[in-house]
Write a protein that binds this DNA or RNA. Sequence first.
DNA 1: TCATAAGACGGACTGTAGTCCGCTAAAGAC
DNA 2: GTCTTTAGCGGACTACAGTCCGTCTTATGA
Lengths: 208, 208
Amino acid sequence: MNDSTGPRSALQRSLPVVGEPRPERADARRNRLRVLEAAERLFTERGVKNVSLDAIAAEAGVGKGTVFRRFGDRAGLAVALLDEREQELQAKIISGPPPLGPGAPPAVRVLAFLDAYLDLLDRHVALFMDSENASDGARYRIGSYHLWHRHLSHLIEAARPELDADYTAHVLLAPLAADLHNALREQGYDLDRMKTGLRAVATSLLPA
Amino acid sequence: MNDSTGPRSALQRSLPVVGEPRPERADARRNRLRVLEAAERLFTERGVKNVSLDAIAAEAGVGKGTVFRRFGDRAGLAVALLDEREQELQAKIISGPPPLGPGAPPAVRVLAFLDAYLDLLDRHVALFMDSENASDGARYRIGSYHLWHRHLSHLIEAARPELDADYTAHVLLAPLAADLHNALREQGYDLDRMKTGLRAVATSLLPA
DNA sequence: TCATAAGACGGACTGTAGTCCGCTAAAGAC
DNA sequence: GTCTTTAGCGGACTACAGTCCGTCTTATGA
């Protein structure tokens, strides 16, 4: 095996970059991966709601404190697990082909986003619920919420500059709350009905 | 004092009305009122988030079990406390003067409702948050949510019959989530901005 | 007034989220 | 290789939500 950190110049050694924190310690990394693996395994085995953080810590072979230090709380763990899936959508939005990616007219991109998000949400409702509801207002503190919000906000600004784009973006994101999605699912709604309904609302709001 | 239950005929005695449960027992009523009073007092004193149900039970001078039997859970207690305030709005909607009450065109009534609800929400954010977030999907199981939903659904149906009124009503209620309201407040939004923004959205959706 | 059953009472008990802090291991300096 | 600093570790601990069930109260009708 090669040593991954080669020799460093005196300058490099004597001037640690401020603001850029040390790289993750080896044991920290090992445990982080263990916990994520254990969580994923238990969640799919027993369902998100039926797994305590104690159980995850035990399954991962680490202490409870470790889980909390890494992820803050239950919501944080759920966020970490969702991250991967959300990044895929984020990538498509930033640099994928239209209509999700740049190139299509703003109103069309909004419709494409809502559709894509509903798909994602529907596939991972339980995880989303955990990440959004585990603590009060968690949804609005998560990085990805801000990303979706900024995206919509720009598109709304472009399509209808006379609206309060920032607020309107929150309004469009509101019906994507995991809680609501789950409640509608339970009362018999299917995914297509929501897609169609939301598309109709967005179309009224942002005529093409 | 008169005996409030006078003599009853043999028929009345032998045919207890089914479906209509016995009246509330005196001790039950006493304790229910005590708990509500104690909860209201502690909530205003310390803030909703800083009061445990143990504390409420102690303050009310009843056992913990009593609190839970009556109200089910934390959310149920919050719902009971909100009930009074919400009933006022409900009354205005059902039989008050237009535009909140019957008489005005549907689109106008929707705007009036959104405004009035935002006022109510803003005054009692903390309680609403408790009632909506204390358990997963609590918001959508509460009786009053169904009432608001039915109201909006009828108005939408009247104003734009080609829409999926049921779903669209959920969409219009979504931005009224206590969680979102609170988050926006924390990031500096004022009530008027939300009213204006939501009115603009609703107007696009339901032209007058 | 008393007997009886429906139902309420309440506190001990369980399970979980989240905190705290003395201990341990890794990384860098020499 | 050894020393020092720094960060991570982990489990005992606290506080709270919600359950359970033996005991006690109320309403009723005889």
